[in-house]
Structure formats: structure tokens, C-alpha cells
Design a binder for these strands. Structure first.
Lengths: 284, 284
DNA sequence: TCGGAAGTGGGAACACTGTACCCGGTTCGG
DNA sequence: CCGAACCGGGTACAGTGTTCCCACTTCCGA
């Protein structure tokens, strides 16, 4: 999310007013050029990317593409998500994806610049907390259901957390969601900057939690074990650690009642929202 | 961190007392067997892993290995970390690693079961927030410097966040750190369970924040652009988004003063600690 | 001192990956 | 009806993790 759109923002804001007029014409020109031969355009993008020059953002290209192309891309992305959900990220190869679509492998490259780009599209397609079911008016309740929804989303697509972590989320879906959440934060009476920080903090916590919860699950899938086999595997080691007596605090925590993932998530979320509450209580 | 050691803990605790005696003899036996031919042992582990059976945990094997082997493994892991820091995770291949060590590629497999295992070792080697510089007595101050240290660590090794996310962190280094932090939480007067949740929440936030901060940086490295080139690339797109007028809250946040990464991190951390403070104020 | 076993290093080969290059077929506007 | 634009995909290449195997060193007991 560009909730933290970094320091170049100032420059952007400056150049914004000047460039605002010229943009539409420029876009029309680009569209004409592209329609001429879309195929070569993709190739050109590829070579330019290889040379390390400035590129075009995926979503701009897609927005200008023909409806058929857009549908095709959506179909590819959906299939890719399905494969990744079932077999994990390692199981998602272009050949597998193609065969699951019943097409040739290299045909995919007519619609997608690279696997990298495909992943970017996958992330945006799936990373969109849905606000419409959230209660309105009470920001605390809204944030709570929102955090729960996002967590559910991340757990439903085990590959998602790792991929989100390594690419700036500025896709249209993500943006729409970010806008809605920011609206809630602003509705708390916070100034925009603080609102941005609040939302960023909330999302960071949720993603961190989901990552933790997925770790064990991921390890089992990777090694091909069942959950039980894996536990059996680490049991002697953990036992040894506890026996050693070198980790008293750790031991006492392990030996105490163990909260479920749900409970621990709710605990952390509640603490975080407690922290936010102070902002509205003391500030403006 | 096994701060969330999941539901099988109960069973573990039960079997603990029974098995406690037998363990040392069992270990001595295993050691004798292993010394006989360590090479075959590694091969056996490999095939057993392929068949999907129960394995041995890496750290147990290493603890029993000869000092020379331990040194060699450490050398490999260090080199791997260096390569990953410089060229990213994608740039870390076994061949590259070997050539950076001046050895043959397949020689590495004498010391490391697989690349997977190597990554696990790398994570544990580097993921250890250091508590010794932290002030004692004041938990809030301790947590603050601790969070800052961990964030610094994660940013210093850009590949670390993604890898932590997908493997349960139960290495000795990680355990030692976890134990120390848990000690601080218990020192707040919290019961072990709550202490565990508090620490988990804190670490989750830090990792989430680091992931966010690294996203842009990662994207540039992956595409081979400079930071400026990348910004130039997305600028028109962001401009278009703002122009569209469909994201008013988002726009107002982007247009407002932009906090630095540091400021935003400190903000979130402060809110989280505010939330923790309530625990000590109201509870026991 | 010597012979054999245990331990070490690494080359060749395999099955797989992402994707550049190119050619034959299809569709459609003039 | 024909040419141009578009679409699908086979072949090939460089690079990956890993296995199998063999030559070499080191060391220990007789």
C-alpha cells in the first residue's frame, strides 16, 4: 500500500499541477501507437526492462488493452492463483500453469510480460480486504472485522504473505481497499498523516501475524510431511532444549496454557486498538 | 519463534516426564551409530526425507557433528549470507556460493542436506535480536530498543523477512533471543501465557513493518532499476490514480506531509506499547 | 611401516526451470 | 479476396537443485 509512499512524494506533488493537462493527450497518443501492434509493444517492453530503463506500469498497459486481452489475462491470473493455492509457490511453474489451462506454455507470454509480472497481478487480485460487510460508525468494530477479514484472506492463500512482502502494493484492487480503510481512519478524526500511519500499523500487524501462523504449515508442505510427522520430528529437539535448563522463560511459556492462533491474534489486535484509542482520547 | 508452539504442546508436556530418562542413553547410542559413517547418515536422511518420513532436526545433527564439520558449516552459512546480502535471494545459487568459497558445487552437499536446510541455518544465524545493550528495569525502554534492533537487523538482510515468514523459527540463536525477550515480558508482571502473546505481537509488528519498508527496495533490485528510475516508472500511474478522483482518502493522505520510514515505525511501536501499558495498569 | 578403512572433494548427468526466437495458422478490414 | 495484424505454440538455451559416482587424502591399528 502506498500509505507510505516515501520521500519522493514531495516532488510528485510539485510536478502534478504542471503535468495535469498534458496527460490525457499523451495517453491518447500512446493508445494509438499501441493499437498499431500490441505484440511488438510487449517485446519492446521486455527488451527495455532488460536494459534497465524506465518501464510502464502493468496496470496502465492492461487498462489500455483490448477487452479480450483483459479477459484472457484475468483467466490466466485466476488459474495461477488456483495452482498456487493447491501446490504452493514452488509448484507454480509456467509449464504447469499452461497445462492446467490447456494451452501452450509460451502462449502465456503474449499476455504477461514475465512470471514476475504474473505474481504482481496475482497479489493484487487477491489482496483486497473487503469493507462492505463491516459495521460503520464504530471505528473499533470496523477495524476489528477488517483485520479479521484480511487475516482470513492471507491464510486462504498461503503464498500471499511472502509475495506481498517483496513488492510495493499499488494495484487497483489494493488501492481501492486502502482508500476505504483510510476513510475509516480519517473518520476517527485523525489528520491524514496520522491516519496513514494508523492504517499502515494495523496492516503490518495483521500480515506479521499471518506470516507466523503460516510458518509451521509451510514447513510441513515444503518437506512433504504431515503436520503430525513434523511435530514428531521436532519433539525430541524441543525436549532437549527444555531439559537443558538454559531457557527458563521460554520453558515457562511453553509449559503454560497455550492460546490458539485465534486467541493470540485477537489479543494482539485488541492491544493495538487500545493504543489507537488513546489517540482519539487525548488528541483532536 | 515457538512463542506460539501450537496445540500439540499439551501432548508434548505429557510425554515429557516419561521420556526424560531415556533420552540421554538414546543420544549416546545415536552418536555412536553416527560416528561410524557420517556420510551415509546424511544420505540416509536425504532418502528418508524424500520418502516423507520423520527426520532429525538440523541442530541436533550439527550438535553431534565433529568440530571440523561445525566450522565448515558455519563457513558455508556465513558465505551464503554474504552472497544473499549482496545479490539477493535469487542470486544465491549453490554454484555461485561454491565458487565464492572456492570449492566445488557438490562439495557443499556433504555439509548441508539441501538448500532448504541451508536457508534455515542462515535465518537462525542472523535472526537474533541482541538484548545486551538494552536498558534494564524499564520494560518500555527495553522493548523499544529491542524492536529497533530487530528492525535494523531485518533491514540489513533484505532476504531475511521473506524467509522468516515461511519457516518456524526454533533455532538455538532464535531461542536464546526469544528467552531473553520473554524474560522482560514476565518481568512486567504478566503471566507466562500473556507474556508470550505480548512478545509475539511485538515481533509481528516489527517484521510487518520491515517487510513494508523493504518492498519498494526489493522491487527495484528485482527489475534492476535504480530507485529513481523506478519512481519515474510509477509516477504517471500514481498521477492517473489521483486524477481519477475515485480515491479521495488515499489522495488526501498522499498529499499530506509524508512521514519517513523511521517516523512511521516509531509511531506504530509507540501505539503498540501504549496498548501493552494498559495490561499492567488494570491487570495484575 | 604399511594397508585398509573412513572421510573429503568434485565432475558428469538428470530433470526441471524461465523465457527468447521464430514460424504457421486465424481473423478481419479495405 | 488479399494483406496485415493478431494469436498460439514448438524448439532451444542457459541456468537451477540435486544424485551418482569416482579419485583422493588422512588416519589408525597391526
Amino acid at each position: 500500500m502506498p500509505i507510505r509512499p516515501s520521500r519522493h512524494q514531495r516532488d510528485l506533488r510539485q510536478s502534478l499541477s504542471q503535468d495535469l493537462r498534458r496527460t490525457t493527450e499523451g495517453q491518447r497518443l500512446a493508445r494509438a501507437q499501441m493499437r498499431e501492434h500490441l505484440r511488438d509493444h510487449l517485446d519492446e517492453l521486455r527488451t527495455r526492462a532488460r536494459r534497465g530503463g524506465t518501464q510502464e506500469v502493468v496496470w496502465d498497459r492492461l487498462a489500455r488493452a483490448t477487452p479480450r486481452t483483459q479477459r484472457e489475462v484475468a483467466r490466466i491470473v485466476d488459474a495461477a492463483i488456483e495452482v498456487a493455492d493447491r501446490d504452493g509457490l514452488d509448484g507454480l511453474s509456467m509449464r504447469r500453469l499452461a497445462s492446467s489451462l490447456g494451452t501452450g506454455t509460451t502462449s502465456l507470454y503474449r499476455y504477461v510480460l514475465s512470471k514476475e509480472e504474473l505474481l504482481t497481478l496475482m497479489v493484487d487480485a487477491v489482496n483486497a480486504p473487503d469493507l462492505k460487510t463491516a459495521p460503520s460508525g464504530d471505528w473499533r468494530a470496523t477495524f476489528t472485522t477488517l483485520a479479521r477479514d484480511h487475516r482470513r484472506q492471507l491464510l486462504a492463500h498461503p503464498w500471499l504473505v511472502a509475495e506481498i512482502a517483496s513488492r510495493p502494493a499499488i494495484g487497483p484492487n489494493t488501492l481501492r481497499a486502502a482508500d476505504e480503510i483510510l476513510g475509516v481512519a480519517i473518520g476517527m478524526g485523525l489528520d491524514p498523516t496520522t491516519a496513514g500511519s494508523v492504517v499502515a500499523t494495523l496492516l503490518r500487524f495483521v500480515r506479521g501475524a499471518a506470516a507466523d501462523e503460516l510458518a509451521e504449515l509451510d514447513a510441513t508442505r515444503r518437506t512433504g510431511m504431515t503436520q503430525d510427522q513434523w511435530r514428531e520430528t521436532i519433539a525430541p529437539y524441543v525436549r532437549g532444549v527444555i531439559e537443558s535448563g538454559r531457557f527458563p522463560s521460554f520453558t515457562s511459556v511453553v509449559m503454560s496454557a497455550d492460546p490458539t492462533d485465534d486467541e493470540q491474534f485477537e489479543f494482539g489486535l485488541a492491544r493495538l486498538l487500545d493504543g489507537f484509542e488513546r489517540l482519539t482520547a487525548t488528541g483532536g
